[in-house]
């Protein structure tokens, strides 16, 4: 973790969507620590609006939310040409094993497992960012 450059996400617009404020704040703080420009939303509906407006480099979204859940959010983004290419990573609960497979099948680019561990979060995030060619070439270690 020490190896990861502190400003590695400098200039990256990122949107995090989660209805749990604490979880949302932990993610936001970590991402901001690495220099990302983070916008947040507390449900899918809000998320779609912000994403469409800010056009981030990637989105991290919880699956289970009020108003519009993570699945719905993904669907909406894929319906809109402006957002169709934006990589979306799902946040799946540790206990909800089936969600990971379902998430991949539904079209999420990858997933991160909750609870988020600040010690390993960035490592995991970089690993999944490397699986998306569009993001991989933007990373500057």
């Amino acid at each position: 973790m020490n190896k990861i450059r502190k400003n590695i996400l400098e200039g990256w617009k990122v949107v995090v969507v989660d209805d749990e404020a604490d979880s949302l704040e932990v993610a936001t703080r970590i991402l901001r620590f690495y220099g990302a420009n983070v916008s947040t939303a507390s449900n899918g509906r809000e998320g779609v609006e912000i994403i469409t407006r800010t056009r981030p480099r990637f989105v991290i979204t919880d699956l289970s939310m009020p108003e519009l859940d993570g699945w719905g959010l993904l669907y909406e983004l894929r319906q809109d040409t402006r957002t169709i290419d934006i990589p979306v990573f799902a946040l799946t609960a540790h206990a909800m094993i089936g969600d990971r497979e379902r998430a991949m099948a539904a079209g999420f680019h990858n997933y991160l497992t909750k609870p988020l561990s600040p010690a390993t979060f960035m490592e995991e995030l970089l690993a999944i960012m490397e699986t998306v060619p569009a993001l991989e070439q933007l990373i500057q270690y």
Partner: peptide, 18 residues
Amino acid sequence: RTPLNAIIGFTGIMLQGM
């Protein structure tokens, strides 16, 4: 788990110096 995750998360952030 939810509050615990929050505790772990924030503790981690502090320990990481974030």
